[in-house]
Design a protein around this nucleic acid. Sequence first.
DNA 1: CTTTACGTTGACGTAAACGTTAAGTTTGAG
DNA 2: CTCAAACTTAACGTTTACGTCAACGTAAAG
Lengths: 141, 141
Amino acid sequence: MSGGRSGERTYSISELAAEFDISPRAIRYYEERGLLTPRRSAGNQRVYTRRDRRRLKLILRGKRLGFSLDEIAEMIGMPETDLTEVEQIRRSLAYGRSKLEEIARRKKELAELEQDILATMETLEQTLDRLSKEGASHDPR
Amino acid sequence: MSGGRSGERTYSISELAAEFDISPRAIRYYEERGLLTPRRSAGNQRVYTRRDRRRLKLILRGKRLGFSLDEIAEMIGMPETDLTEVEQIRRSLAYGRSKLEEIARRKKELAELEQDILATMETLEQTLDRLSKEGASHDPR
DNA sequence: CTTTACGTTGACGTAAACGTTAAGTTTGAG
DNA sequence: CTCAAACTTAACGTTTACGTCAACGTAAAG
């Protein structure tokens, strides 16, 4: 009876590991690094709430985008700050803005990379066209 | 007089290192990994052409986007394939297409991350508004 | 020709992000 | 209750991407 009704769906470590296709060790490591703080069962086993699951999702997204765990910690640590301290909130907002800028930069880099690849592919396609139209006999100058 | 007129501007390793704000060691490491293959001077020193410089730029862009050197090697190794072997060209094109798909995925993830951050920031701003409007006295329920 | 800055190849060191045992504990099926 | 499956901590191993000497060669300035 103590502390809210428990309609909360929870997950074990191997459940989450299977769902996201990572190892339990990786999840424990994220906890070591302070990125996750699941509760424990009576027998000391980790219990993950939906909120923990959402955080894990964010962690993995950050990883796929090439952020380090330290950077991710800062990013998702953002909503962790005491939601009462005004100055903390201001800082979080500033940090959020800087992250948005970084995202803008990455978008730009992705676009440039895409252009590079497209350009290279066009050259290749032209070469392919030329080779197939010329057949095998040609004076190589 | 031997081998083409040398209107080619070249660079030393420390020039490139300074320009891109990385260490010469890093550049040598990229070479160890097969990502760069500069020519050598009479005295065995590395000489980088504009083409090498472009490749280095691509390497660094890939790094900023969180690709591993192996992945980058595959990506920029693409234009390295013998430009005469038709089958090689076909494979390169297929590889290019897969990379474009990956870029599309990353764009999507960046957009989602952006939304997450924006949503969090909105919540923070609302909290800030509420706190400043309520002053300091309020019954915390 | 000497000095000084820059370059070369090893070779070992290191931080990040886990993988991999090992040795013991908890949980759930029967 | 029993036993296997899943969990726990602790500790050492591994890969990636360099950093950091060391010991030597080379380029260029005076």
